[in-house]
């Protein structure tokens, strides 16, 4: 942990920006470059930056949920994304969509989004588990 004023001030600014950007990337993912994996990496690096500036304990406190639990929840999300297909007699992981509205303004929500959120959580959880574990070793 470095006691750098510049890093700490910058982190406060960057953290929220990076988290917001990661969610933007996550939601953008289905039809354009982006997605859960890259979004998860951005979010994970936001927390990793925080832990470098303020120490791993502060980062854990900020995250509220243990990164391991986050990864597990992500796996469950991803599995859950495959299951609705059973209701319609399709194969596992066949995408199921809901549509609201008409024409250009149609809003699509579907299982691929749930899957992407699952990936997002798994990536954050897994990366931070490793990063925080390594950082805590040093103290």
């Amino acid at each position: 942990m470095t006691e750098s004023l510049i890093l700490r001030t910058a982190t406060r600014l960057l953290l929220s920006l990076m988290l917001l950007f990661s969610i933007f990337i996550l939601l953008r993912g289905h039809n354009e470059p982006g997605g859960g994996f890259i979004g998860g990496l951005i979010a994970a690096s936001a927390f990793a930056l925080h832990s470098i500036a303020f120490g791993p304990a502060a980062a854990r406190q900020l995250m509220v949920i243990d990164p391991k639990a986050l990864a597990a929840a992500g796996v469950l999300c991803a599995v859950a994304a495959g299951l609705p297909a059973a209701l319609f007699g399709d194969a596992f992981m066949r995408a199921q969509w809901l549509h609201w509205g008409e024409g250009e303004a149609t809003f699509h929500v579907g299982t691929p989004l749930l899957f992407d959120i699952g990936v997002f959580l798994v990536v954050i959880g897994a990366v931070l588990t490793i990063v925080l574990a390594l950082e805590e070793e040093d103290v």
Partner: peptide, 10 residues
């Protein structure tokens, strides 16, 4: 799924 649940019950 079992693995994920077991992690949640760490």
């Amino acid at each position: 799924t079992t693995a994920a649940l077991a992690v949640l019950l760490w």
